[in-house]
Amino acid sequence: MHSFGYRANALLTFALTILALICAMVSLSDNLNSPSPSAEIQILNINWFQRHPDGNDEVSLTLNITADLQSLFTWNTKQVFVFVAAEYETPKNSLNQVSVWDGIIPAKEHAKFWIQTSNKYRLIDQGGNLRGKEFNLTLHWHVMPKTGKMFADKIVMSGYRLPEEYR
């Protein structure tokens, strides 16, 4: 009844239960944070815009991304994954979402940033539908906790349009 093994077992079980409980409470505490992030994206330049021999349109953009995601960080935040996706509709596909840039923010100090970049991933359409196409640029973020539930949200910025001619 009071052997060494019995006591060791009881201690271990108790310690693990407390640890799990603390982890759950820490994860729940994330819900108390109501973030108010802001973002702005400008298209500075259409670097080039062409149709491939297989009929697919591809465009290269230079983007100016300004964002303040500091309020997303809590004591349980390991990193924030942030990315910009271009979203548009075509006759064949009801929705196209293409990630064009992403980054990992490891700490709150780096969460207020400004970057001028060309698209990191290729913006290629499945077809030749990009001329004069209206599209949204959406800044998405995924909050990666140290433990517990993950959070994700986005800011949609609309009203962008590609040129009518290839260049």
Binding site: F81, K92, N93, S94, L95, N96, Q97, S99, D102, Q126
Partner: peptide, 10 residues
């Protein structure tokens, strides 16, 4: 892995 591109075909 993470989804980087999504197309919805109807």
């Amino acid at each position: 892995h993470r989804v980087v591109r999504r197309v919805e075909v109807v």
